[in-house]
């Protein structure tokens, strides 16, 4: 074996050790001659490990005759990389080995893999806004709180937050609005509600995520249809027993309640007429005789949208209680 010692190999491995230090593992034979080297390759992110979502162990088996013979390459423990990316790296690595015959290639291989990982350095979680993953070519944003969104999706969230903020502001009386002039809309992270800063110019120029564009259409399965039938049956059953809310009947009941409470002089200053205004029902659930209570879309627009905002109920309720609400499940992940 010792006859096969090639100074070029010894020099190359020494140089690699000097560059990579303890990141390089060298396997040697019984005479101490290197037979294989391996290192874990990360994307280049200025050594910020938190921004590294993918990695790969590159194993270079120094075949007898290397560097005049191409080494054997193994790509081990790929993380966050799908098979197509891995296949491309494998092909490129082998091509490079061929073209570098007779020369030291290991450092070139490490650089090549690093380049690929940097290009494929994507978080493997889903975007909490569109519920799709991050694909190569997707523009995405990491918030200060380390949550990931497609830039396009986050732009929609920012625009929507600003719009609702302006709407709330417009509802305030002028004197209250003037109390905090120019206070800007603080956008919150959709996942953890931490305040976040966004560069809207950058966000809004991003294209929609690729997976969303390619997703399959939805079709009702037999299972769904059977569930629909069960629900319709339950609805009819509850309707027979008088268990279904009839918004129209409730409205006329409320008119009576208003009268009696006024006569009895109950101590509720707002009175039930404010708490239960005879408003248009939220859903037009009395229409349709099939037992399913589906509003047509037109009804929704009228009843759902205009009705929701215009209804006195939520307003009086919130004013009376200082905008307190139930603390419901956090959106923690």
């Amino acid at each position: 074996m010792s006859n096969d010692v090639d100074e070029r190999v010894v020099d190359e491995v020494e140089a690699l050790k000097a560059i990579l230090m303890d990141e390089l593992i060298v396997r040697t034979n019984e005479s101490g001659y290197p037979v294989a080297v391996e290192t874990v390759v990360f994307p280049s992110t200025a050594d910020d490990a938190l921004q590294q979502y993918v990695c790969l162990t590159l194993v270079v088996e120094l075949t007898p005759g290397y560097p005049d013979v191409a080494p054997d390459i193994l790509l081990r423990n790929p993380r966050g990389l799908d098979d197509s990316v891995l296949g491309r790296i494998d092909r490129e690595v082998k091509e490079k080995c061929e073209s570098y015959r007779g020369q030291a290639v290991i450092y070139e291989l490490i650089e090549l893999v690093k380049e690929y990982l940097t290009a494929s350095n994507l978080p493997s979680c889903q975007c909490a806004i569109c519920l799709y993953g991050f694909r190569e070519g997707d523009h995405f944003t990491k918030t200060e709180c380390y949550h990931y969104f497609h830039s396009h999706c986050l732009a929609c969230h920012v625009t929507s937050s600003e719009k609702s903020y302006q709407e709330e502001l417009d509802k305030l009386p002028a004197w209250q609005r003037n109390q905090h002039p120019q206070s800007p809309c603080q956008v919150l992270c959709p996942v953890c509600r931490e305040p976040i800063q966004c560069d809207m110019n950058m966000l809004s120029s991003a294209a929609p995520p690729l997976d969303v564009e390619n997703a399959r259409q939805f079709e009702l399965s037999d299972e769904l249809r059977s569930l629909q039938r069960q629900m319709a049956a339950l609805f009819s059953h509850q309707k027979r027993r008088g268990g279904i809310i009839d918004p129209e009947a409730e409205d006329s009941k409320l008119l009576l309640v208003t009268d009696t409470t006024e006569q009895e002089g109950e101590d509720d200053p707002a009175g039930p007429s404010v708490l239960f205004p005879p408003a248009a029902p939220l859903f037009n659930s009395t229409s349709g005789s099939t037992g399913s209570s589906v509003p047509n879309r037109g009804d929704w627009r009228r009843g759902g949208r205009g009705g929701y905002r215009g209804r006195g109920n939520s307003g009086s309720h919130h004013n009376r209680h200082g905008r307190r609400h139930h603390q419901a499940a956090a959106t923690s992940r």
Partner: peptide, 17 residues
């Protein structure tokens, strides 16, 4: 009585997540 629910996440605490 109309089945409407008082829950913060359905109003101002809504989040797209």
């Amino acid at each position: 009585r109309l089945g409407r629910i008082c829950l913060d996440i359905l109003k101002d605490k809504w989040s797209p997540a």
